[in-house]
Design a protein around this nucleic acid. Structure first.
Lengths: 163, 163
DNA sequence: CTCCATATGTTATAATATAATATCTGCGGC
DNA sequence: GCCGCAGATATTATATTATAACATATGGAG
């Protein structure tokens, strides 16, 4: 998929590419992409949507990769802390990062129709928020930006039926 | 404290003022500010920080206003849905709104030192996020912006000790 | 007074997350 | 080799956050 959007795409290929990239990144940075961690990332990439820790755990359990919550949470912690995945606080769910190589402040566009989630770039230290923080003397270290709304696909299906 | 900041202030007075304003607002809009709802708002205003639903519930229980989770959650739902309070997703906690009369997109500055939370104004449909959404054809209906960092008071206590 | 809408009370349980402890595994040093 | 350590995993138990479902009360409209 396009990292910014809701468009259709060659999904099998994007999973394989992202997984290979993650593996390469881990090799370069001496990170240990263990089978569980790798599989969780793969599940997130395949799902291509926000998945709960217990959704993940169900898959792991079926595959004999672990049956208890900490297994899923530890793998997710690893992925999140190294930028391979993000947590969507609004949904208590996790999603694969669309661009792990770039340090960025992600913003998420969450469709309330189909529950798809797109990742966008944000720049919290600019704009009104940055100004307000600067005025208050607050130092922003990390920001979470999640927008709820309608994706283009879901907007098509509704529209004004009046008249 | 000033509604937008981390400054000290006449707290007793700000609680009373906000509570009176809420009461007036409810009267004008035919909203039912029942004792539990009113007390929960007062607790949030007094606490002047993000409080968990179960923190609230503890107080209610002590005061004989309700002992089960739904009591707290229902009151919080009322307050949030009418703009008297906000939920901080990042903390799974709730905080009194500093400006219920103005329709706004709040952004929160959460201090990781003292856990104070300040409310700022944001404008999600402008800036990078708005542009990204527009490009993707996504319609933002609601946004949640939560920044983690250090408030001015906590920044003072640290600072570079080198040299 | 009755009906109805709204609010409250209560029980039970769902969903999300972590603490604490034990075990395993690979690997550098000796 | 094998000791000891660091990181990873496994398991048990429990904490924390949230809601479903249903029963009861309360106050105003007709």
């Amino acid at each position: 998929m396009d990292p910014l959007g809701f468009e259709h795409h060659d999904h099998r290929r994007c999973v394989a590419t992202a997984l290979a990239a993650a593996q390469a990144h881990c090799a370069r940075h001496r990170l240990n992409l263990t089978p569980v961690r790798r599989r969780v990332l793969e599940l997130l990439l395949e799902g291509h949507r926000a998945m709960g820790a217990y959704d993940i755990l169900d898959h792991l359990r079926e595959e004999g990769l672990g049956a208890q919550p900490p297994v899923a949470y530890r793998a997710l912690d690893f992925l999140v802390s190294h930028g391979f995945a993000h947590k969507i606080e609004r949904l208590n769910a996790f999603i694969a990062c669309t661009d792990p190589e770039t340090v960025h402040t992600p913003a998420f566009l969450i469709c309330r129709g189909c529950h798809a989630v797109a990742e966008a770039q944000a720049e919290p230290t600019r704009g009104m928020l940055g100004r307000a923080a600067a005025e208050a003397g607050f130092e922003i270290e990390q920001a979470m930006i999640e927008a709820l709304g309608r994706c283009p696909n879901c907007r098509e299906g509704e529209a004004a039926p009046c008249a």
